[in-house]
Every structure is written in structure tokens, then in C-alpha cells.
Design a protein around this nucleic acid. Structure first.
Lengths: 150, 150
DNA sequence: TAAAAATTGACAACCAGTTTCCAATTAAGT
DNA sequence: ACTTAATTGGAAACTGGTTGTCAATTTTTA
């Protein structure tokens, strides 16, 4: 076999960059009919999937971005009445966020469309390949995780 | 049927987003001693690896970004004297770009450090897993490639 | 060959993320 | 309990990408 492992890793890194751009672009078109973007869809999902209503740093943590990045999207989502702050008994300044009924409806509709899309894609993939890909991505993530605070 | 495959694809999509951010961040630290960033390193690489000196749209094509995005980085790279425009016989307004000696030295040093880094990582990965990951990423890329111009 | 279409660089406006500050709040240490 | 440290929202400046528009240049086509 031709490219050695180091070349394969390099090629995967470049694929990640390219695919990230493609997925964001694709998601922008996908969510446009619902008045959303890839970024806001992700935040909506992080709130919807959280076991408890999360505050901003918790959303940022699960998404792997900074809390400032989440903050900007949250303000927009609140403005669009898809998300609502909820007073936090444990922290006066840091509200918890929940989906409004409109937000729930939007997220549910998007989830349905997304699942349908992925179901159509799935037959093109082998389950063992997918497992292998998950192993590789998770190991790369581990290997390039942020430095311990210096 | 295999209801797991759809979940696996979803989880891979989220991994892509997270890993993209991590790799960019990691690359910024990695290239900082050379006065570069992830973005400029990638452009430098696209020029270094091209079989012929490319113009801006060609660089954009191989990187999977827009020519405007490349344009901004190119202006910076030219300003830092890592890259040089070269008059294009075939197009008066669209120069071809080559690395300056300084640019070659920088890219070579970075390549060496990168290969070393990846060689250290490689033993943690199975070659068949890497091949599977490449298949998955390439299929996902195919499935979400930009719509044919409408 | 002349006219229409596509390509290209340049610039501006925007989106989504980052870092860097700051002030308010909460948590920890003594 | 008091002081200090860590967390948090907020705003600003910056990076790196996008789209859109425009004028200059190919390229195509009629």
C-alpha cells in the first residue's frame, strides 16, 4: 500500500478542513428555509440535547467553541424567539437557556429532515468504516486537544 | 435498518466541526514561531505543492475555498516576502505565484516539523482505520459538495 | 470580427469565530 | 467572615472566511 500512515494522516487533516467548509455551507442552505444558519442550528441542538437547561459556558463546552462565540448566536436566537433565558437560581448573572415552543418546533422539523437526509446517505457507508472513522477522528482530536493552561 | 449508521454519521459530522477548530488552533501555535498562521501555512503549501506556479483561482480550487479568501492571505504572504507574483504570459491581470527563497525555507522547515509530529502520532493509528476514515470523509465530501451552479 | 459571456483582481460588507478587556457575581482559601 | 481567585456576561478589536459588485481582461459565440 502506497501512502504510508503519515501521508494518510496529512491527507485526513486536509480533508477535515475542506469538509468542514462544505458542511457549513451545506447546512446554511439546509437551514435557510427555517430562517437559521449552521451556527445557530448547532447551538439550538446543543440546548435541545442537553440533559438540563444549560448556561452559555456549558453550551460552549459541549460544542468545543468559546463562550463568546456562543454568546453572539444566543443573542440572535433569543431575538428570533427560538430560545429563552430562564433565571438561574444558582447564578444571578448566568441564565439557563431553553427552547421556546417555536424553537422546539423548528428544531424538531430540522431533525426530521436531517435524519431523512442521513438515512438516504447511510447505505453508501459501511458500518465498520464508520466505526473506524470515529476512532480516527477521536484519536486526532485527543492528539490535538488544547494545551493545558499555561 | 441499521439505525446506528445514521447516528454514526451525525456524530462524525459534529466531530468534523470540533476537530476543524482544534486543528486550526493547533496549527496557529505550531506555525507561530515561523511568523505564520494555519491559513497562511495552507496557502503556502498549496503553492509549494502545485506542479506549476498557480494563480489565485487555482489555489482556491485546490484548497476548496473562494478566490477572495485566498486573495487576502496572498496579499499578506507577499507583504511578508514569502511569496512572489510572477507575470503570467497567459493573463495580464492574473499573476502566477511562487515561493521566495525565504518562503521555501519557511515551508521546508514547517514540513520537516510537521512530518516529525505526524511520525510520532502514526503508531497510535491502524493503517486500515486510516484508509476507512479516508473513504468516509471522501464520501461525505462527495455527498455534500456544492450544488451545480443554478 | 464584433458582441456577449465568463474569468479575474480588487474592494466592501457581512458572518462566525477568536482574544482581550472589564465589571459583576460566585467560589475558595485563610 | 474577609480576602482573593475563578467564573460569567458583555463589548470591542481582530482573523479568516463568505457574498456581492465593479472594472479589466480573456474567451466564446454568432
Amino acid at each position: 500500500m502506497n501512502p504510508n500512515k503519515t501521508d494518510k494522516l496529512s491527507s485526513i487533516a486536509l480533508s477535515i478542513f475542506r469538509l468542514n467548509g462544505q458542511l457549513i455551507e451545506w447546512g446554511n442552505h439546509f437551514t435557510q428555509p427555517h430562517g437559521l444558519t449552521s451556527a445557530r442550528w448547532q447551538v439550538l441542538g446543543a440546548i435541545a440535547m442537553a440533559p438540563q437547561p444549560p448556561n452559555i459556558p456549558q453550551i460552549a463546552e459541549t460544542m468545543g467553541v468559546t463562550r463568546q462565540g456562543v454568546l453572539k448566536q444566543i443573542k440572535l436566537l433569543v431575538g428570533e424567539e427560538l430560545v429563552q433565558p430562564q433565571s438561574n437560581p444558582a447564578h444571578k448573572r448566568s441564565p439557563l437557556y431553553v427552547l421556546t415552543p417555536k424553537g422546539q418546533a423548528t428544531f424538531q422539523a430540522l431533525s426530521e429532515r436531517w435524519r431523512k437526509h442521513v438515512r438516504e446517505l447511510a447505505p453508501g457507508f459501511s458500518a465498520t468504516d464508520l466505526d473506524a472513522a470515529i476512532r480516527v477522528l477521536s484519536a486526532m482530536s485527543q492528539a490535538h486537544s488544547p494545551m493545558p493552561d499555561e
